[in-house]
């Protein structure tokens, strides 16, 4: 890893004294020789949306499934809403909402039947019609699961995840397979939930999704949390060099600088009028993410 070269820590912990919905320390889960989760420390502050990014097989799903109480752990301390998930009871579950990766159940039931049925599991569920409306399935209320499109099925999953009025909602790759418009609508739904104070732990492959939705972004690679910060500062993004590029004659010139504004002013002074093909580029979340993952996968030098 090349953390030595950065001045700020890559994993920025939650502020001390923050009200935590999730607190994980030293979480480990091994499957034979495979270290699926290899020492994850993670805080999720109440009321925030935290997005977990990471390549397939990095340990995102194993980590969230341990937090959800589905999987056992080999080591580490885990508290989810103040309870160890390994000993979570029905009351604890009623405070969680879980939207898993793909499922193909409930095909023979209508949207309304499914949502109304699951509402019955919770001590004080939300209004069935209102939840169906909020996920944009009002017109598909009487449609059976098998007849829903992929995106509509995913919304049904979310409806079932939020029907109990959860304090903490887990969303595992919720928008995989959505078209761009459906994703944007889905983001609005998540923003609305966040607005009501629901804490959300989201895993995703889409960096734009993380940037738009998340208060903080965590990057998991090879079973460890290698970076965690607000999207604008992730991986020292705010302190990294900006690249100014322009054209001189037939040649494209670039300059990396900490002071792009001053540099562009100078550049403008050297040119008569417009600087040809001028652009200022700061590393996108994707650039930062790829370099974090890349650094982690190369052996330390």
């Amino acid at each position: 890893m090349s953390t030595e070269t950065t001045t700020t820590p890559l994993v920025v912990p939650a502020p001390p004294g923050a009200d935590l919905a999730v607190r994980v320390r030293g979480l480990r889960r091994y499957y034979g020789e495979t270290r699926a989760v290899d020492g994850v420390d993670l805080d999720v502050v109440r009321g925030e949306v935290l997005a977990l990014l990471g390549p397939n097989g990095a340990g995102k799903t194993t980590t969230t499934e341990i937090l959800e109480g589905y999987r056992k752990r080999d080591a580490g301390d885990v508290m989810v809403l103040g309870v160890d998930p390994a000993h979570g009871d029905g009351h604890w579950r009623s405070r969680l909402g879980i939207v898993l990766q793909s499922a193909s159940d409930l095909g023979d039931l209508t949207v309304e039947e499914s949502v109304a049925h699951f509402a019955g599991y919770y001590p004080s569920p939300r209004d069935v019609g209102e939840v169906i409306e909020s996920v944009g399935l009002a017109e598909k209320r009487r449609t059976r699961g098998f007849d829903l499109s992929g995106g509509q099925r995913r919304r049904l999953d979310v409806a079932l995840g939020i029907i109990g009025g959860p304090e903490l909602l887990f969303l595992d790759e919720p928008t995989t397979g959505f078209d761009p418009e459906a994703r944007r609508e889905f983001w609005e739904l998540i923003r609305g939930l966040r607005g009501t104070g629901t804490t959300i732990l989201l895993t995703t492959h889409y960096l734009d999704e993380a940037e738009v939705l998340a208060d903080r972004v965590g990057v998991i690679s090879r079973g460890r949390l290698i970076a965690c910060d607000v999207p604008a500062r992730l991986g020292g993004r705010d302190e990294s060099l900006a690249t100014v590029s322009w054209r001189e004659g037939d040649e494209v010139r670039t300059e990396e600088t900490h002071e792009p504004t001053r540099f562009v002013q100078e550049l403008a002074g050297r040119h008569d009028g417009e600087v040809p093909a001028l652009s200022v580029h700061r590393p996108s979340l994707e650039d930062v993410y790829l370099s974090l993952i890349g650094d982690d996968e190369e052996p330390a030098s």
């Binding site: 004080s124 209102e130 304090e167 009501t196």
Partner: peptide
């Protein structure tokens, strides 16, 4: 898409296993 209700923190009693069984 709109969301209007805040998460519950009430301590309403959980439905009984038998009544949930009948729903099942």
């Amino acid at each position: 898409m709109t969301t209007t209700t805040a998460p519950h923190t009430s301590s309403a009693p959980a439905p009984s296993p038998l009544s949930l069984g009948l729903r099942r």
